[in-house]
Amino acid sequence: MFKLGSKKTDGTVLKQKTLGSRKTAARDNGDLAPMLVMLSPFLLFFFLFTVLPILSSIVLSFTSYDMLSAPKFVGLDNYHRMLVNDSVFSITVKNTLVFAIIAGPLGFLISFLLAWLVNEFSPKIRTVLSFLFYAPSLVGNAYFIWKVAFSGDSYGYINSLLLSIGAITEPIIWLKNPTYIMPIIIIVQLWQSMGVSFLANISGLQNVSRDMYEAGAIDGIRNRWQELRYITLPSMSHMLLFSAVMQIQSSFSVSAITTELAGYPSASNSADTIVSLMSDMATVRFELGYASAMSVVLFIMMVATRLVVGKILSAVQK
């Protein structure tokens, strides 16, 4: 319907016509050396402190390793044990998936929606509102307030509120009840993980060119919804992918919140996630080989999700 210089600013379209395709323009440069110089500091540390540990963790997943004696190669034993014999693991997989499927997309949508709305205001108001939504990630591990709020006796904030308005007659033991525990943790997770995606989206919105909006108005965009659909979202595609990846990362890795609120193990494992089980294996039971195998399986799940989400996002943008 609207052809607004595809994803780039109109300046680009103009220049591309005169310079030819970007490939021919870029190929004839002798810029390889400075490029590599700029890349190398990160690459060095990335390899040393991230890639190497990940590779060793993958290797460890095929061993039995208690951190005291040397790792012993056991082939696929860890994987066999996890996928066939460990009934707790399958529960944690289920919990993690439920969690990721609900909290991930919700967090993604809310963080974009909030950023979009907040960005409409003048810089001063925008700063204040941004601060309010960024605050939860400032306080770090402040889940304890939720613990007080959802406390199981009649003195918990929620219980005493519900009791006083007569909605319930006796206190609900929120954090020990499998029915309530998942929704509660999803809410807390959404609240806590908003900061990164929200701020990334805000920063993205600040660079959507004003010319695009003006051009859009000339081309017949009539209201904010059309503007969102045909200008803002396409210009934001890269930031949206970033925030989607962050949501995948955080929603699959929930563990501190559940451990803090519901304890580990939680009532009939109803809130245990892969990472909380894995942390237990790695730091309490010292079964590092087994924990590494879980890490690998979780990694595969997340990568698969990332690929699917990438497909969905690019399909939506067409």
Binding site: Q249, S253, V275, A291
Partner: peptide, 8 residues
């Protein structure tokens, strides 16, 4: 690498 959990 972002998706590999740091625990292990």
């Amino acid at each position: 690498a972002l998706m590999f959990n740091a625990t292990t």
